[in-house]
Amino acid sequence: MIQRSLSDKVMQVLIHFILLAFGLTCVYPFILTFMASISSEKSILDYGYQLIPKEFSLLAYELVFKDEFIYSGYTVSIFVTVAGTAMSLLICGMAGYAMSIKRVKYRNAVAIYFYLTMVFGAGLLPWYLVCTQFLHLQNTVLALILPGLVSPFNVFLMRNYFASIPSELIESAEIDGCGVMRTFVQIIIPLSLPIMATITLFIGLAYWNDWASALWFIDNPDLYPLQYMLFRIESLMSFVKQYGSMGDMTMPTETFQVATLFVTIGPIIFLYPFIQRYFVKGIMIGAVKG
Rank of each mutant, 00 (worst) to 15 (best):
A122C: 01
I78G: 06
V141P: 10
Y113Q: 06
V80N: 02
A86H: 09
L142E: 10
I145N: 05
I70V: 15
A109P: 09
S77C: 13
I101T: 06
A122I: 04
S100A: 14
L90I: 12
Q138N: 10
Y115L: 15
L125E: 04
Q133H: 07
A95Y: 02
H136W: 09
K105H: 13
L125T: 11
A83D: 07
M87F: 14
L124W: 08
L116H: 06
F114P: 04
T140H: 08
A111Y: 08
T81H: 03
L137V: 02
F79Q: 11
M87N: 12
K102E: 12
F134S: 08
L129A: 10
C131L: 13
S88D: 01
M94D: 03
L144E: 10
G73S: 00
V130E: 02
G73Q: 00
I78H: 08
M118W: 04
G73A: 00
Y128M: 12
V104F: 09
Y106I: 01
G123E: 03
V130M: 07
A143S: 11
I101L: 15
G93F: 06
R103I: 11
A98L: 10
G84W: 01
T85R: 00
T85I: 00
L144G: 06
I112D: 04
Y113H: 02
E68L: 15
M94T: 02
L142I: 09
M87S: 14
V119L: 12
M99K: 01
Y128A: 12
